[in-house]
């Protein structure tokens, strides 16, 4: 019984920290998704310079650990503090983990998502694009009405993984950035509780439960969306569901 009360106590204690992880994810994922669309189109562009720039960006952020990206960007931002941020009076905003954290996460997920979307873009049925050209669709209409629905459907399973991965990666924010006041996330709070009684199993399990619960929610919502995206393909969503709860990165 004391076990159960200890677990319940931890669940209560970790509820607010969980909100910080959710905040980091929700603040970065939509921005990253939006930028990734443009980056993917850039990588697929016929314009040589645009293609190279997009590919380089994707390579840089996919090719290095997120952990190091946090350190690099934080130290660069810090280096500019006295010369730029302070004189502008925005040092409190720029250096705030609640701002800088989502920025770094967004930069990172932009690259991964762009690569996923780019892969999807190259798999859009050529014949359907050609038909749209033959019927006189403008490039914009072609993208919106024909390319995008295929692209997002093809990208969706991989993108779901990226979202879950990014959600888990929110734990890296406070590995690099300073905790201000009581703005702790799940990992820092679990670490603090661990320092009191050295009960690893309890505190990190409960923190892990929060991640499991949120991931499950993501899977369920994503599955519903996927079902909608594949409604014209009998059986596709059902097939995917079996691979859904497979080990992630």
């Amino acid at each position: 019984m004391t076990q159960l009360t200890a677990v319940l106590a931890d669940i209560a204690l970790l509820a607010k920290p969980a909100l910080f992880n959710l905040y980091f994810a929700f603040a970065s994922i939509p921005i990253g998704f939006l930028f990734a669309i443009f980056l993917a189109l850039g990588k697929a562009s016929r314009h040589g310079l645009l293609r190279r720039l997009s590919s380089s960006y994707i390579y840089m952020f996919r090719g290095s650990p997120l952990f190091i990206q946090f350190f690099m960007i934080y130290s660069m931002v810090l280096a500019l503090n006295l010369s730029v941020w302070k004189p502008l009076g925005i040092d409190g905003i720029v250096l705030n983990p609640l701002v800088l954290g989502p920025v770094v996460l967004a930069l990172n997920t932009t690259a991964y998502t762009a690569e996923i979307l780019f892969g999807a873009l190259t798999s859009v049925p050529r014949g359907e694009i050609e038909a749209a050209r033959a019927f006189g669709f403008s490039p914009g209409t072609r993208f919106r009405r024909i390319v995008w629905p295929h692209m997002i459907r093809l990208a969706w399973p991989a993108y779901t993984n990226e979202v879950v991965f990014l959600f888990h990666a929110t734990t890296l924010v406070y590995f690099t950035l300073p905790v201000i006041d009581d703005q702790k996330d799940l990992m820092t709070k679990a670490g603090e509780l661990f320092q009191r009684d050295f009960n690893v199993l309890l505190h990190y399990s409960v923190a892990g439960l929060y991640f499991l619960a949120c991931s499950l929610a993501i899977f369920v919502v994503s599955g519903l969306i996927y079902r909608r995206l594949t409604r014209h393909m009998p059986g596709a969503a059902q097939r995917w569901r079996f691979t859904l709860i497979s080990p992630l990165r």
Binding site: P125, G127, E128, E130, A131, R133, A134, F135, I146, H150
Partner: peptide, 15 residues
């Protein structure tokens, strides 16, 4: 193009 109706070997309907 919007005045020329094309029919393809592989149909190319928007699936």
């Amino acid at each position: 193009r919007s005045e020329l109706g094309m029919v393809f070997q592989s149909f190319n309907l928007w699936s």
